[in-house]
Amino acid sequence: MPLARCAGAGAKQISSDAAGMMAEHTIALVSFILTLMVFSYVLGDLPLIGVLYRVAVYIFVGMAAAFTLVVSYEGLILPYLQDIQNTETSWTALGNSADIYIFFTALLFGLLLLLKPVRSLAWLTNSVYAVVIVVGAAVAVVGALSGTLFPLLHHTVSIPANLVADFGALLDALIIFVGVMTALFYFHYQVRATGAAGGGQSRLARGFRHAGKVFIVTALGAIYASTLLTSLTILSERISFLFQFGVA
């Protein structure tokens, strides 16, 4: 099945070079200036310089909000409008006419959420919001169970085949198992009350929790380092851009 060769759709994608070039230079210049403005954050609250960062940020926030709106409208509402007019298709097993009801119910719900602050409508808006929340919660529960809890547990307790041959793998699997269990135990909330002074745990329980914390902190450290590396990669791209612009 070929990707639809719609008549002329997207055919004028080829950029016109002359105008494009001007635009490219302007884009590069504007991004250059804005990048420097953001980098002025490093200098902190020096007079004037502190303003640059915040101006850039507020430009960014306004623009991001606008883009989010535009893309939501163009990328979602328009396609949906398009889609419900197509009588041959339907979102659910109920047929196309149901689509229209669903769409306009959703519009109504959106409007009601907008009116959430109106106190006299609270009984209605809260109910609408409750629908959003519980559907989200249901998706989250199903996702958390089937996507994270069960597969991860399953994988944690399934040891690699041919363990006898590979002692290293066995050891690693055991360490992972012990790590997961002790770290999970670490989060335990309820403790025994041991008198007026406070709560306590048995030595064993405390030991487990310390062992668990070793794994947790190790994981956090590694993730921190990875995050650092990601931001470094992005920084290198920005600096590369600054230099390229400086050259050109």
Partner: peptide, 23 residues
Amino acid sequence: VPVNAGARAILLGIALGAAVAGV
């Protein structure tokens, strides 16, 4: 190994917490 274990435990914990709060 250890990072895998720790991250897995945190994830499991979050999934557990999310599931209970979700219910």
